[in-house]
Design a binder for these strands. Sequence first.
DNA 1: CGATGATCTG
Length: 623
Amino acid sequence: MNGGSSSILRTLRLKNPKLLLLESCSKLSDLKIIHGHMIRTHLVLDVFATSRLIALCVDTTLFKNSSSLVYALKVFSQVPSPNLFMYNALIRGCSDCENPGRSIDLYIDLCRLGLVPDNLTFTFLIKSCTRLVSLVSGSQSHCQALKRGFDGDVHVQNSLLHMYSSLEDVKAASQIFHSMKCLDVVSWTTMILGFCKCGDVGSARRLFDRMPERNMFTWSIMINGYTKAGRFEEAIELFELLQQEGVEASETVMVSVVSSCGHLGVLEVAERVYNYLIRNSLSLNMALGTAVVDMYARCGSIDKATHVFEELKERDALTWTALIAGFAMHGHVQKALHYFSKMLNAGIVPRDITFTAILSACSHGGLVGKGFEIFDNMKRVYGIEPRLEHYGCMVDLLGRAGKLEEAEKFVLEMPVKPNAPIWGALIGACRIHRNAKIAERVGKTLIQLLPEHSGYYVLLSNIHAKANNWEGVDIMRGMMKQKGVKKEPGCSAIEIDGKMHKFKTGEKSHPEIHKIEKKWEEIVMKIRLVGYTGNIDDALFDIDEEEKESALHRHSEKLAIAYGIMKIGAVAPIRIVKNLRVCEDCHRATKLISKVFNRELIVRDRNRFHHFKDGACSCLDFW
DNA sequence: CGATGATCTG
């Protein structure tokens, strides 16, 4: 009887078109038809046939929602004496569902029935523990595997590697890794992933270089590790190595590469990477398409971002958000609003970051009423509870519009405890509108929150100085000395022939530094003729910005601009990316440079893009 | 009899 069951199934498969579905059904109703047929023909009593049905139900490549798993459990509950294959299938199915704890119950169940688990049981069980984020169940499963003699199985060991490193015990993972007799690609890759997860990209890379063979997963995980760690240049370098080795990149790995280009703001590299995608006919799926839109926007090419967006076949909320955030960054407020309503009309449900994007657009455009309307809808219509970022946007919105008292009130009354960036937004607004009174209050709060940040001591000290409060100045200076505070160093980058040139404030180590300084002197002479004073008297409110101008301490941005004028042909725009906000003096100087040298300069700072042209800036002097 | 472990946008 048992021997004949597969032939029954095979015969039925051929004779009955419904059973053909067994291999190709994708709806729960298909499964039910098959199940019904099996009941009528008593095929359900055939353990082999029912096993196949259950295995089919838990196949996540066919069924994405959990209802088919529930159905599998139902079928299973009616089987008088289930076998190990069924248990394995269900344990695997549960490891992918929202309640992976069920796998453990099933495991206990099968042991109680006297069934003997095999290596596959443990791979699925351990995966469930990983998903459960339970080191206790994980260790227990590990013990069970040991007791049953499967601790030498590569699959089981690899599952354990993944489990321990996912549950933040890389040491345990590493111990297993080093004790393993047989390491395959998955072992190496999983260990690399483990190191990446805990931020030890260096160790990850050492393994990567040592391993005997790599596949696409390995490349993808290593490159993504660099991206996640904010080491974008290394991510791109590794992508270049991948090409040299003749490996064909996957869509997944390209998401990391593309996003690294975006973070660095390197347009030439971005173009090369985009061409690579086209040349290798990689499909712009949702993840990759979104990453490309984001990349072009961050590289200063909002038109390309829009173009790519329009050509995409599928878009989700994050795709729309990437474009809207791009418009916000570039100060294209109306476009941001236009695409926001287009998105809503298309029936796409916005996510929390969508609101961060659209609210920041409103703030760049000074649209207070519109911003508040959207902020209210966010809660009322979409049920999204505002997070600190959203409150930050609102403070920005009020602040930039000059409503400083309201902004301060808003901060004091918000239901969540304001953090440093919120107060920072408020003090930034005080800077724009020269409000020393509120700035003093906020500055004190900020010093308490961020005692190691020197900017606020300087600010308060400057305010005291202006008010002739010399005692206050002394106190601030004393506190600064005592805490030994440092500012985040300013750093600007310029891309020339696809290569990044980085300048730090007061940079001296660049091989052409003398030429660059000379060039800057020449630039200053020319812009002085049209009114540049290099005046730092009103630097009272400089907070995030770099140290004051002096013979040695040049702002990184000015060095980068000088270098750009030396190296980049007269028609091409000069593109600069910097880590801090543009300071007022640099902003003024850059506007004049754009006029005197008749050049376009595109500067991306911490918050947004500044397009300088004909003596004016796209931010309209509010940033 | 059958199947297996590792990735992914802000």
